[in-house]
């Protein structure tokens, strides 16, 4: 099982240069059955990452480009009257897929956004009174431009909470950038990707991640972190219990990717920035790293 995981990581790292941390976070998010929000300026490889991941994991992929005139039906699907059969037939929207790339999600109106976000939470959609299950696994990678850019509808905090992680990709370092500039076109690379595992493997991985051991000592640490955000005056409000659960499931997935069957504090520290930064409105510009440094490991 670890060899398949390593194969996945190797292939993705071959396509996305110099971003091992982000790749592992994205994978951990996927394995922890969470959705991923990537926030960064255009052109740093958000879309590429989504493409590469779906190609490598062998997931059915579709993409929605969010625009300000996007309607919920464009996402969920619509029933169309078929004259020959004299009845309505449901045409599923792009959401009926295993990996959905919701590109520039903050360009769409809140109405369209919430259609997607509700589906993400429930893993099912209800259209015209009929509830339809989404495929499993169902994984959303949403990208958004930093909200201060023009023409955006920032996601409200309650909606942000639906994403297990929010990560930034950032610019590549000198060396990675050089090989990026010299190397072959990313599109060709994506076209040449071969699936490194199948759906059954992925579901088994997700199940195994749930079974990674969490000790009392580690729970103490997670609770100390939660308590600190609630009691410290640096934050407008603390992390919710759901955020605590998110921390644990992400840390389990991370530990598994790291080849361990028990979570250690370092796992929590690695996934913490991704998991908490969008849930923690900080009054004084506290970064996740500052949170880590403020809380002693018990």
């Amino acid at each position: 099982m670890n060899s398949t995981l390593n194969g996945v990581i190797r292939q993705v790292e071959g396509a996305i240069l110099g971003k091992p941390q982000q790749i592992r976070l994205a994978l951990a998010c996927l394995i922890a059955r969470g959705h991923l929000l990537i926030e960064d300026v255009p052109g740093v490889g958000k879309t590429t990452l989504a493409h590469v991941l779906s190609g490598t994991l062998g997931l059915q992929f579709s993409r929605i480009q969010f625009t300000s005139d996007l309607l919920p039906a464009d996402i969920l699907g619509i029933s169309v009257f078929e004259r020959e059969k004299n009845q309505f037939k449901f045409h599923p929207g792009p959401i009926f897929t295993q990996m959905l790339l919701a590109d520039e999600i903050n360009r769409a109106t809140p109405k369209a956004q919430s259609a997607l976000l509700e589906a993400m939470e429930e893993h099912q959609v209800t259209i015209e009174g009929v509830t339809r299950k989404l495929p499993a696994p169902f994984f959303v990678i949403a990208t958004q431009n930093p909200s201060h850019q023009t023409g955006t509808y920032p996601l409200p905090e309650s909606q942000l909470d639906r994403f297990l992680m929010r990560i930034q990709i950032g610019y590549p370092d000198e060396k990675a950038e050089r090989s990026l500039l010299c190397g072959i076109d990313r599109r060709e690379i994506i076209a040449g990707l071969t699936p490194q595992m199948d759906i059954a493997d992925l579901l088994a991985l997700q199940q195994r991640a749930k079974e990674v051991f969490v000790s009392e000592a580690l729970l103490d640490y997670v609770q100390a972190l939660l308590r600190h955000t609630r009691e410290s005056e640096s934050y407008a409000h603390g992390l919710s219990p759901r955020a605590g659960l998110a921390l644990l499931s992400a840390a389990r997935a991370w530990a598994m990717i790291d080849g361990r069957n028990a979570v250690i504090p370092e796992d929590v520290q690695n996934i913490l920035p991704g998991v908490v930064s969008h849930r923690l409105p900080s009054a004084s510009g506290q970064t996740a790293q500052q949170l880590i440094e403020a809380v002693a490991i018990p």
Binding site: I264, P265, E266, Q269, I292, E293, A294, V295, A296, I297
Partner: peptide, 9 residues
């Protein structure tokens, strides 16, 4: 060891 530093690190 910093108080927040895990054993592996």
């Amino acid at each position: 060891r910093a108080t927040h530093e895990g054993p592996a690190d």
